[in-house]
Write a protein that binds this DNA or RNA. Sequence first.
RNA 1: GCCGAAGUGGCGGAAUGGUAGACGCGCACGACUCAAAAUCGUGUACCAAUGGUGUGUGGGUUCGAGUCCCACCUUCGGUACCA
Length: 950
Amino acid sequence: MRYRYSSQKQYIMEYSPRDIEQKWKSIWEQKQTYRTENGGSRPKYYILDMFPYPSGAGLHVGHPLGYIASDIFARYKRLKGFNVLHPMGYDSFGLPAEQYAIQTGIHPAIATHENIDRYRSQLENLGFSFDWSREVRTSSPEYYRWTQWIFQQLFKHYFDKEAGKALPIDTLVQRLASEGNARIQAACEENTPLISASDWNAMSEREQQLFLLNYRLTFPEESYVNWCPAMGTVLSNDEVKDGLSERGGHPVERKLMAQWSMRITAYADRLIDGLEEIDWPLSLKEQQRNWIGRSQGASVKFPLENGDKQIEVFTTRVDTIYGVTFMVLAPEHEWVDELTTDAHREEINAYRTWTASRSEVERMAEVKKVTGAFTGAYCVNPFNGAKVPIYIADYVLAGYGTGAVMAVPSGDQRDWNFATHFQLPIIPILDAQQDMDKGADPTKEGRYINSGIINGMSYEEAVPALIQWLEERGLGKGKVQYRLRNAVFSRQRYWGEPVPAYWKDDVPYLVDENELPLVLPDVDKYLPTETGEPPLGRAENWKYQGKYEYELSTMPGWAGSSWYWYRYMDPHNEKGFVSKEAVDYWQDVDLYVGGSEHAVGHLLYSRFWNHFLYDLGLVPKREYAKKLINQGMIQGVIEFIYLIKPEDGDDSRTFVSADLLGNYPGKEFALIPVHVDFVKDYGRDESHLDAAGIEQFKEWRPDFKAAAFVTNDKGQLLTKSEVGKMSKRYFNVVNPDDVVARYGADCFRIYEMFLGPIEQAKPWNTNSISGVSRFLNNFWRLFFRDGKWLVNDETPTKEELKVLHTAIKKVSEDVERFSFNTCVAAFMVAGNDLNKLQCHKRAILEPLLVMMAPFAVHLTEELWEHLGHTGSIHHADWPELDEQWLVEDEITYPISVNGKLRLAVPFPASAQPAELEKAALEMEGVQRWLEGKPVRKVIVVPGRMINIVV
RNA sequence: GCCGAAGUGGCGGAAUGGUAGACGCGCACGACUCAAAAUCGUGUACCAAUGGUGUGUGGGUUCGAGUCCCACCUUCGGUACCA
């Protein structure tokens, strides 16, 4: 490489990404080029990336996709004159560091610190414009102090339904003391007893505290949790997939444990309604709506035939109540024992034992199978006094509604299946119902029959009539039911935020606010204690004020990520989680970029916390992120080769090319993953190991050194290719550092954008990266050729200006709609055109350079310096579009006959439709197609096309 | 099953209802070279080829449909006995 030294500046004359990128990385750091201030006259713009968990594996090429997109947009907004906040940090509490600690004894803080350093250097390698002075780490005490503080606020508040928001628990205490809770409408536990003021006042301090737990927004309770014995921890519903843990795939069982819980259900309605306000992907909003699962219906009480108890059910189809022919309880329903008659006790107990023994996975697999048992008991339909037999069956879930359903076989397929199986009657209730013998008909059309007080009515008339009837008699009411459960907030783990509470007389109290953070204590081992308590139980002398037991569970992964965007606004504040000035200035996130896999986890919990903080007047917006875009996953290609499964005692190993498996009938094959680097044309049907690849494989897996390889007639061992996760175990992880070392960071950034639309998932390959690399080299050569500076100050031609302004228009529009792949194409077009025109004019190249600055961040900065600028190109102004250069003198009109394109003819741009029509009809090329038929109609769209109809 | 998204060359992908396949890869040919690589240039949807056919399939709306409407098929993502 050649340098020219002058006034201590280093000029680089040839496109050498490594030198250019090194140079500017250090200059930007030195000059704090990306430092952001709170305030100023420019409008604010906040661009947030979902922060990563710093895993030991480091970044792979999939991670930066969203970061590159957001960085481009951040830089674009800066050039457009915005004060942009674009920070990065780490979600640094989590299980992998703890597993590592269990294995090695190394404190998770140390391993986490190392991982963060690695992430940081990988991120810096990619030229991001993060303001690193604002970095946050959820595992640092300065940060989790405020996570704990927010937790305490949740404990100190309850949700008042009349006010529609969270209010201090003191307000509730005052009302309880003066009027009891009969008129208090608040989000609370289902079974909260009704008490009078005197009841309350007669309670002891301890009883009052226990009573208040029914209302607090976070509270400990005995509840069934997803317990994962292999991991020794509790998982939330969204961390469990098909009865297995999402991480690691370990079995999960239901277990009753004392757990902290978050009353997110209090915000269910607001979380649904808030979706209207935000510009998030439709599918993501839909997922949140489904997860919350709001259903409008009614609760109805069915009195028991014997005794004065009533079974309460929830139904969304109260209009079908005259079609009820039986009742089904969940096998776990608490009344089952009591209801069961002696004649049926054996059968019921057998059924319950059987259902309890079945794993979640088995249950899911056998959904179609009808099972159940009759209790021998009956209840009474309140509307017509009909005797209704009570069954138990595992298609009714204990966790939803009341754990009991009124079964209407004529309208509900599951009930129909059950009724058919147990030969129970099926009563049609609408005259529009059909084919009752083949299945249920859930229609709401028609008029009711066999239906007492609603006979002859329509659906719309029947529902209010029935609800009124129920309410008048105290037998039911209109009700809204949610699928959403309160969120379990405890983890029996070490590496998380300690819950800032202690226990006195089995009642939880908060650690004094001034004593926060409650720092994670050291322990000798990161395992549960001998008595089964969480690891924190091992901490020596760890007691509040030396005498009270601290809460020993820690917070879940989503705690720290539920408010972090505020910390970036004011990262070093010691008086609050964010100052009022900072949050008043930055307000909310304008653009949030991250993966759609967080749709019902992080993105729902964080909205919940934000609504709560809003209620307390601590933040200005109900919804914290105006717009959200999902970046698609970059997947890996997984390559396998086929190994014949050896017989017992057979030591030979034979691999067979995928196209030759048919030659081995009756043999079974094992799929052995191969390092993708050995595979030619990986990710395709023709992917294979050639002779060299087979050698590489043998060297890599010495245990197969003696194996035989049966190749096809081309000498290839064809592989099986799959698209899947990038993961160590598939040997397909591509580290961005390697790509950067070969092509440079600018090329890597542009290539990832060029792969396709940002939200689309795609497998990683480097097939066309050479095209991007070539483009950057060609672009450089518009400025330098063979070390010679070519840029001149000549006046540009009209044609050159048209090239420039076409690019300005296209890129400006496409960046705004996050279509970065077409921006890259537009740059390539401009580069190619200018190359053909041999244009090296400053007036053209300089604006183009500015537009490319968000993409090729280093290269453009270097050329900007060569152009004589002293400031950074990243503080320049986005070029203005001047439409006059886009006006054409001549327009080529496609001429169609009957919609079929026949020819394309240039006309002056000023030609009027009538002239065009006349000229077109006279053309020989057109006449040929008219074949003398009469012209019915001519459509002329000025500037677009001409269509002749005959 | 339900909800959502998407189906376009050999491949990644472009196209406010108006010339389908921009841009890139790959491929072919050519230049440079003793040769190869790299680089540069030209071409590249398909076919029985003055023409015809083409955006998952079948219909429809329109002068005109990849784009809008209806039905279906396939793929991907989410969810799953939610009463």
